[in-house]
Amino acid sequence: MSTEHSPPSTDDADLEFDPAELQALRERVAALEETAADGDDGTKMTIVATQGSFDMAYPPLILASTAAAFGWDVVVFHTFWGLDILHEEKSADLKLSAVGNPNMPIPNAIAALPGMDTVATRLMQKRIDDNGTATIEELIDLSLESGVDLQACQMTIELMDYDEDDFYDGVTTGVGAATALQHMADSDIQLFV
């Protein structure tokens, strides 16, 4: 078949290996492979989502849904403002901050005027629609459908005076920092957003 990337023929290589050394190396590789295969197979990723602004809701959801497409085991732990992403009512109304956003083409003094966050959010929403970028709700549905574990920090639920029923169906509640850390310790990739 295709030999494009075939390894160099061993016939031509300098075979100056000590057979005993080679055997020892083979055994070491086998032992390491066994260790590596021990316990968990497959890639794991944990994302901690702490931000609940319209723009910051996207990166964790895009990465999580894509990772699930790779067949990875994915947990997104939502805490503090990140909780709003999973909150059915608040999620539909996330705002982009016009103030303190260096990417905004308007000075902070004007951005601070009432209603400017709404204007900035509408502009961003329009760009998202025009570009065919998925909505936050679509990404949440996709993530849940594909087996991503979207977790809502219990302490923050109580802190924000939310109810467990306020969240999308399928969201995991009743979890805290220890649950997140446990998955992070097992993960190949840990991201804090």
Partner: peptide
């Protein structure tokens, strides 16, 4: 067509 990241990958997987 008309959809952007991550949809092409996610929908392909599905």
């Amino acid at each position: 067509t008309g959809q952007s990241c991550p949809m092409p990958v996610v929908k392909t997987k599905q």
